[in-house]
Amino acid sequence: MAVTETTEVRSSALGLRLERHVDWMIIIILILIIGAASGFTLAVTMGDWEYWVDWKDRRFWPLVPPVLMMIFPAAVLGITWTKLRIPFGATFAVFSYTLLKWVSLYFNFNVFAGFPMSMVWQSTFIPLAILLDATIVITGSVFITGFVGAFLWGVLMYPVNWVMLAGFHEPILYNGELVTAADLMGFEYIRTGLPEYVRMIERSTLRSFADTVVPLTAVFAGFLCVLVFYVSWAAGTFLCRQTWVKKV
């Protein structure tokens, strides 16, 4: 009996050791894959809106990045919540994306191409991801998480980034023209085709909706985020079904 008890205890330790090996490998692998896959997808869809400081306008920046950024956190949360009951899938996805994105921005845009880091910083989504995860922990409901958490993700994107952005919207009188600090940086660092596009966007917003562009955009982004959350959640959970086929 004594021998059996000892063996049981030790074999549990053996199982625990092997499971720890698997866990650590999976965590490292997922950070790399989610970070790279989301970074790549977002680079070729929202791309420039995410990091150029002079692209952080009031009409498209609060709309395009939060809506597209919702894809991976929602899908990862869908998988981790339904299969593993892990409630921080969205935060994990955003953390992975943020980690690789910062390294890439530093080495590529700063070290390689010579742009100052203050010009190419990425938006933060971590507070929004915590909010999304907290909603599912508190409610336990996918429907409410999409309806409330995803809506807040879109609505609050501008405020949570405002602390970092506010300084770049300080007005500067430059050669008789009133520009923001971000605009001035954009004009000083010439890029292939960016400034005219951004000016076009800003001009169209000046006379729109009595200058309440950001709240309007934020609410619209919130609605789109709700839609993208449900679609991505469904895609994530569908793609992790254990389907086998005999022939291809």
Binding site: L32, I33, G35, A36, A37, G39, F40, A43, V44, L100, K101, V103, S104, L105, F107, N108, F109, F112
Partner: peptide, 11 residues
């Protein structure tokens, strides 16, 4: 993938 999706693409 980390190399391709992050460093190489954005370079």
């Amino acid at each position: 993938l980390g190399v391709l999706g992050s460093f190489a693409t954005e370079s």
